[in-house]
Computed example of a mutant assay.
Amino acid sequence: MQLQPGERSILAYFTNEADALNAVTQLKSLGITDARVDRISNYTRMGGTAVPTSIASLTTASNNPEDYRSFGPLLAASPVVSGYAHNGTGGFTHMIALVTDDTQSESVLQVLKNNGAQV
Rank of each mutant, 00 (worst) to 15 (best):
V108C: 04
Y13F: 15
D67Y: 06
Q2L: 13
S70I: 14
L98A: 08
L58W: 02
T100P: 07
E17M: 11
P65E: 08
S9H: 05
A35H: 05
T25A: 09
A61P: 01
L74P: 02
D67V: 07
L27T: 10
S54Q: 12
T44L: 04
Q26Y: 01
E7L: 06
L75C: 08
K113A: 01
T100S: 14
R36D: 10
D34N: 07
V51Y: 07
T100I: 10
G47L: 12
R8P: 00
L75Q: 02
T44R: 05
V81R: 03
V99F: 10
Q2T: 13
F92W: 06
T100M: 08
P79R: 00
L75G: 05
G48S: 03
N114G: 03
A18P: 13
T59N: 12
E7I: 06
E17A: 06
V119I: 09
L27P: 04
T49R: 15
V108K: 05
E7T: 07
N42C: 04
A61Q: 11
E66Q: 14
D19V: 03
T59W: 05
T44M: 08
I55H: 13
V108G: 08
A23Y: 08
S29H: 10
S9N: 07
A76M: 09
Q4T: 09
A76Q: 13
Q26G: 04
G31T: 07
M1L: 09
D19K: 10
S9R: 08
A56R: 13
L27E: 09
A23I: 12
L109C: 03
P79S: 03
A85V: 01
T53G: 01
N22K: 13
D102M: 08
S54G: 15
P5G: 02
T53W: 01
M1P: 11
P65M: 04
D34G: 03
E106Q: 15
S105A: 14
D67H: 08
A12H: 07
Q118R: 12
A77Y: 02
N114P: 00
T25C: 02
N16L: 10
G48L: 06
M46G: 01
T100R: 12
A23T: 13
A85K: 00
D102F: 10
A23M: 12
T103G: 14
T25D: 09
A18Y: 14
R69D: 15
A97W: 00
E17T: 08
A85Y: 04
D38F: 00
L75F: 11
Q4N: 10
Q4K: 14
Q118N: 13
G91T: 01
L21P: 00
G31L: 00
N87W: 09
Y13C: 12
A77C: 05
N114S: 13
T89D: 04
G47D: 06
I96Q: 03
S57W: 14
S70G: 11
R45M: 06
K28D: 07
E106L: 15
R45D: 05
A18N: 14
A77V: 06
H86T: 05
T49F: 15
M1D: 04
F71M: 11
S105Q: 15
L27D: 10
A12K: 14
T33R: 12
V24M: 01
A97F: 05
T33K: 13
L74D: 02
T100G: 12
A18R: 15
G83S: 02
A23N: 10
N64S: 03
S70K: 11
A12I: 12
P5N: 05
H94G: 00
